[in-house]
């Protein structure tokens, strides 16, 4: 897993390459540490993400909680069909801002 961060004013884009599973999710969480304090929008660009498990979703939800408490926004962009289907089947598409 490789995460590339790009900051534009109060918007942070995190592009993730590879897979986010129980082993790599803590690394992604670490990448976000200290980065969410002064942003109002966080975009996870998952175009190059091959696989996302529950462990990855839990990192996204952690960031979502931090931002939503301050009225901020989180977007999941480039979500692959398999992960989108899993999110939809579980019922997360009601709550998260997702761009395919």
């Amino acid at each position: 897993m490789k995460a590339t961060k790009k900051r534009e004013d109060d918007r942070l884009t995190v592009a993730v390459e590879g897979s986010i599973d129980v082993k790599s999710a803590p690394e992604l969480k670490e990448e976000l540490e200290g980065e969410l304090e002064d942003i109002s929008e966080l975009v996870f660009d998952l175009t190059e993400t091959s696989y996302t498990s529950s462990a990855g979703l839990r990192v996204f939800l952690g960031a979502y909680q931090t931002l939503s408490k301050r009225g901020g926004k989180m977007i999941l962009k480039g979500v692959n069909p398999a992960f989108y289907d899993a999110l939809e089947m579980a019922g997360f598409t009601y709550f998260l801002d997702i761009e395919r």
């Binding site: 599973d21 129980v22 696989y51 498990s53 529950s54 462990a55 979703l57 398999a82 289907d85 899993a86 999110l87 089947m89 579980a90 019922g91 997360f92 009601y94 709550f95």
Partner: peptide, 22 residues
């Protein structure tokens, strides 16, 4: 029930595309 890291990892291995409900 994936109530700890070990069971979360096991769940990921056995059911790689399943997510829990919100």
């Amino acid at each position: 029930d994936r109530h700890n890291l070990a069971t979360l990892a096991l769940g990921e291995k056995l059911f790689p595309n399943e997510l829990g409900k919100p």
